[in-house]
Amino acid sequence: MAVKVMIADDHSMIREGLKQLLELEGDFEVIAEACDGVDCLEKLKTVVPDILLLDINMPNMNGLEVLQKMKDMKMKVKVLVLTVHNEVEYLLKAVDIGVNGYLLKDSESAELKKAILAVVNGEDYIQPSLIPVLNSKMLDRDSDSSKIESLTRRELEVLKMLSYGTYNKEIAEHLNISERTVKNHVSNIFKKIGVTDRTQAAVFAIRNNLITI
């Protein structure tokens, strides 16, 4: 039985090209197409593909937003992101949300079919060239997690406030502690997270979603 595929991409030529490529040998059947994120979610209410090929750059709602909505709505459709983006930040975000596969659009047709079948059969499939960078980023994230866990509740409060550009005197007044105590907290924070100034501390806080900007 052919694998039922849905394609979500805002370029009609790409959708048509993928459809012809996949249906050439009869192993796959494209049962639906979507031209943007909103269209994609609407069609998923009436069709149930075995796998969704999802582009990231789409109007109205991008692919990562669609992925998050699908997770929130508890849709069980397998998703393979098919994108031009080789930046690991996009991949990390997709992995965090719960994507089943991530493949670049310049991949060979054989690899695309391999990725689709892997995902449909319950495996995860990540573009091989991106795996070393992904692993490195995940290790960095694990390292950051251990640093965050080493901070006390008060140190986390101080870190968040200084990351917003708050001066020591203002932090002291807000937390009802002495300015000297704030300085001690800042010094301990710098040592624990491995930074040397307030700017680096702010970057650390933003990278780990401790504050929003």
Score class of each variant (00 low, 15 high):
residue 24 L to A: 09
residue 3 V to C: 02
residue 188 N to P: 08
residue 114 K to R: 14
residue 125 Y to I: 04
residue 12 S to E: 13
residue 136 S to L: 12
residue 117 L to K: 12
residue 41 L to M: 11
residue 98 G to C: 04
residue 13 M to G: 13
residue 55 D to W: 11
residue 59 P to A: 07
residue 170 E to G: 04
residue 66 V to H: 05
residue 84 V to K: 12
residue 156 L to Y: 05
residue 22 L to Y: 01
residue 70 M to I: 04
residue 176 N to L: 05
residue 108 E to D: 10
residue 135 N to C: 13
residue 71 K to G: 01
residue 37 G to C: 10
residue 37 G to N: 03
residue 179 E to W: 02
residue 28 F to R: 00
residue 117 L to F: 10
residue 203 V to G: 10
residue 119 V to T: 02
residue 46 T to Q: 14
residue 148 I to T: 14
residue 48 V to E: 15
residue 37 G to H: 02
residue 69 K to F: 06
residue 175 L to R: 03
residue 126 I to R: 01
residue 97 I to R: 07
residue 75 M to T: 11
residue 168 N to V: 10
residue 47 V to I: 12
residue 139 L to P: 15
residue 198 R to W: 13
residue 107 S to R: 06
residue 33 E to D: 00
residue 1 M to V: 07
residue 186 V to L: 09
residue 97 I to M: 05
residue 124 D to G: 14
residue 163 S to A: 09
residue 182 V to I: 05
residue 20 Q to N: 14
residue 55 D to T: 04
residue 115 A to Q: 02
residue 182 V to K: 09
residue 94 A to P: 02
residue 102 Y to C: 09
residue 133 V to P: 13
residue 190 F to N: 09
residue 176 N to Q: 08
residue 148 I to W: 00
residue 131 I to W: 06
residue 58 M to T: 05
residue 56 I to E: 11
residue 79 V to Y: 03
residue 184 N to P: 08
residue 190 F to E: 02
residue 210 L to N: 09
residue 40 C to W: 08
residue 45 K to W: 04
residue 108 E to F: 13
residue 84 V to I: 12
residue 192 K to T: 11
residue 24 L to Y: 02
residue 134 L to R: 03
residue 212 T to Y: 05
residue 100 N to E: 04
residue 138 M to V: 14
residue 42 E to D: 14
residue 104 L to D: 01
residue 207 R to Y: 08
residue 78 K to A: 09
residue 123 E to W: 00
residue 184 N to V: 14
residue 47 V to R: 14
residue 21 L to C: 04
residue 99 V to P: 01
residue 88 V to A: 06
residue 189 I to Q: 01
residue 162 L to G: 07
residue 37 G to R: 10
residue 196 T to H: 15
residue 136 S to G: 07
residue 97 I to P: 01
residue 167 Y to E: 13
residue 145 S to A: 13
residue 125 Y to R: 10
residue 204 F to T: 09
residue 91 L to R: 09
residue 125 Y to P: 12
residue 130 L to R: 12
residue 153 R to Q: 15
residue 206 I to D: 05
residue 181 T to W: 09
residue 69 K to M: 10
residue 94 A to G: 08
residue 3 V to G: 00
residue 87 E to D: 13
residue 5 V to R: 00
residue 138 M to A: 07
residue 15 R to C: 09
residue 24 L to S: 10
residue 146 S to K: 12
residue 79 V to S: 01
residue 80 L to E: 06
residue 185 H to Y: 10
residue 8 A to I: 02
residue 213 I to C: 06
residue 206 I to A: 03
residue 173 E to P: 01
residue 1 M to R: 04
residue 96 D to G: 02
residue 168 N to I: 05
residue 17 G to F: 08
residue 201 A to C: 10
residue 126 I to M: 11
residue 8 A to C: 05
residue 13 M to H: 10
residue 112 L to S: 03
residue 92 L to H: 00
residue 185 H to M: 11
residue 55 D to R: 06
residue 57 N to A: 11
residue 8 A to R: 01
residue 32 A to L: 02
